[in-house]
Design a protein around this nucleic acid. Structure first.
Lengths: 222, 222, 222, 222
DNA sequence: AATGAATGAGGGTTCATTCAT
DNA sequence: TATGAATGAACCCTCATTCAT
């Protein structure tokens, strides 16, 4: 990896690998792990079964790579966020919006994470790459909270982990379970208006969650 | 179903059916839909493949029955809740606690719902029984909120659906994604202390979510 | 096994099992263990792959059954031998002739044994049935030798195992290696005349091997 | 081959070829022809699949080369034997001991020959090199027998081919089938004591096989 | 009501081999 | 000379399902 490959063949090889990986993301997200057929993946990738084993060893290892891949992509996107720590509440709102939008626009990210959890997180547990990637789950969140606390606009007794879970819950569940929810609630949660409303709601809610009791969420921001 | 069966043979038959259904809940929750083998189910049920087809027709129909079954169970449990509408905040806290505890104690409920969503809710959509069962998703929640609004302790501009989603999100996600979350956060979310902390946090948060801005959550309740 | 199966279905089932077993003998003998395709076997048996697994569990277990089967057949045939212990030399000649003829007429027996040895006898070692069947490898030979010793026509210092190995070697190798031998010796060992000559030779040789030094083999018999 | 290659590149090439050949001997002997994977061979040879095809064309041709190779090695070893034709019985004993020891020390030779016979000797038949190498299968044996006959210590009516087969049978079978034999006889034939006893036994037996009836085997030699 | 026997299609995986550089 | 990339066919085996009793 350190040494850059050159030559047309090597480049094509990288492309083949990449195509298979992307196809796997798509197929696993659509059909689950067991349901995701090796054959389907290689067809979507316009390659053949054998190459999948050539590059990834097995279906299981491929899934692990998929997991690493989607997480890396998420991390990259998150890394590009430019948040103004001088305005912690605003920064927090923007982070919530980012996460929400990422989940909405990347249903495969949500699906793959759900699949992995149905498998008790066994792939994530076995992957050292995953441990590296997840090292700073709260990495972006932490400075915001600390800045808010320093300014006195956030409560001092906040558990960072709780804030993280709160945001993730509110963004994830709506998307991961939108099908049964739409059935049960009798409303199409995929509708954009609904989505906007929900984002507004959780955005406020998160702020309420971190702010001192006497301070109004809306009031403060404006 | 409506007509009660009698006789030993009929009872045995019902027992066989019930054993298969419970085995299916267990196996699907553990292995997913594709991964859940008809064979495994009949073995766990101490029956044989053929009976599964005899009673349920197909794997797919069996899964639909499983879905209906777990939802019916949840509804029954929820129906037993005795909430004091005279104290809406307290009632809301109790509802949150109930849902949280139900998810914690019935991981198969959470798993099966996740599976169904990975399948785009197709079984739920096709089942009229499901539509009936889900008819009143917000049925328990509605009177609480209305009572709170009548008393002036809850905001008037609350969207019932948002409250429902908020509670469900905060209870569900922690459980459904606890494996990857434990990895990422570096803490075991299955730990009981962690669970208690989280319940306390979301319990407050939900109240903050429904109360007028100037009223403190803790303050009001106590 | 103890309870005799009845009914047409059960009989057909036994036949199916038997057909697969016989086909397996044939195919393994022809193509070796790795070379013997599950598919070929089920085709020869006029059945299908699935039944092979239904009855035998795996290719490996099927091979073990084949091993047991051919050995059982051999034992049965050997058991039918009626040897006159009053004439030990003659009895020994008849035993040699029987073994020789069995190997000639059952090349699959020879082949399967060779295959098993190329696999270091792992199937035989793991099969309790094989241990039972092989329990009396020298069972038929022993009384002959003891009778000969009692009559003073066989040497007293004979190692039963050596006699067994001598006979088996001389009968087996000619058949097991006839292809390369035919090439190397420039003569077709499958030719019946050659076979007769060899049988006569080894028949004498075996007698020479067990008789006291001063007694001529041919002389004594005639 | 006739023209000696020179230069470092050429030498390396020869070494690669030799490594592959030796690896093939090892792998085929261990796993059989079908079971012997091209991949395993190239790995053992610390080379790669492609080189195997570069040097040998195909798996089948490689096996043929293996066959030729092991036979050549045997011939070379046999050629180094210095036998005293003035003492034919002693010479015959030494030849038996040589063959026995060669088989014991070269189980791969025995294995590969067995494999080739399971394949009906097709590779040997197609190889002109094999025909050349096997040209004088009885080449070493013939002068011994003729010398013995001339001295009157061996029978006149001996079939050279029978003597060859007798020796080969008695040496080969014990080794080729030692796994099942050990199982069946309940004794470990790989044990050195057992081997020595057997060599003594067959050594005497072979002499008995070639000597006139009235002459004792042991008596004569000593 | 219950169950052994049977099946075709397809599961993940590996095979020997060839291409292109 | 040497090697990564690629392939189609076939491997052993298991799937959900149905038949016949």
């Amino acid at each position: 990896m350190a040494i850059k490959k050159t030559g047309i063949r090597a480049q094509q090889a990288d492309q083949t690998r990449a195509r298979i990986l992307q196809a796997a993301v798509k197929v696993f997200a659509r059909d689950g792990y067991s349901g995701g057929r090796v054959d389907s993946i290689s067809k979507v990738a316009e390659s053949n079964d054998r190459m999948l084993y050539y590059y990834f060893g097995s279906k299981e290892q491929l899934f692990t790579c998929v997991l690493e891949h989607i997480y890396e992509q998420f991390n990259q996107a998150e890394g590009k966020l430019k948040l103004d720590l001088a305005a912690p509440a605003q920064a927090l709102r923007e982070l919530v919006a980012f996460i929400w939008n990422y989940y909405v626009k990347h249903p495969e990210f949500v699906a793959i994470l759900s699949i992995e959890n149905l498998h008790q997180g066994k792939h994530a547990r076995q992957s050292s790459e995953m441990r590296r990637l997840s090292g700073e789950a709260v990495g972006v969140l932490r400075p915001i909270i600390e800045a808010g606390q320093a300014q006195g606009v956030f409560r001092q007794d906040i558990d960072l982990k709780h804030v993280y879970l709160m945001i993730a819950s509110l963004c994830y569940f709506y998307n991961s379970n939108r099908h049964t929810l739409s059935s049960f609630l009798g409303e199409d949660l995929s509708n954009e208006g609904q989505q906007q409303d929900w984002l507004a709601f959780i955005s406020d809610l998160v702020l309420r969650g971190v702010m001192p009791d006497s301070v109004s969420a809306e009031g403060f921001i404006n």
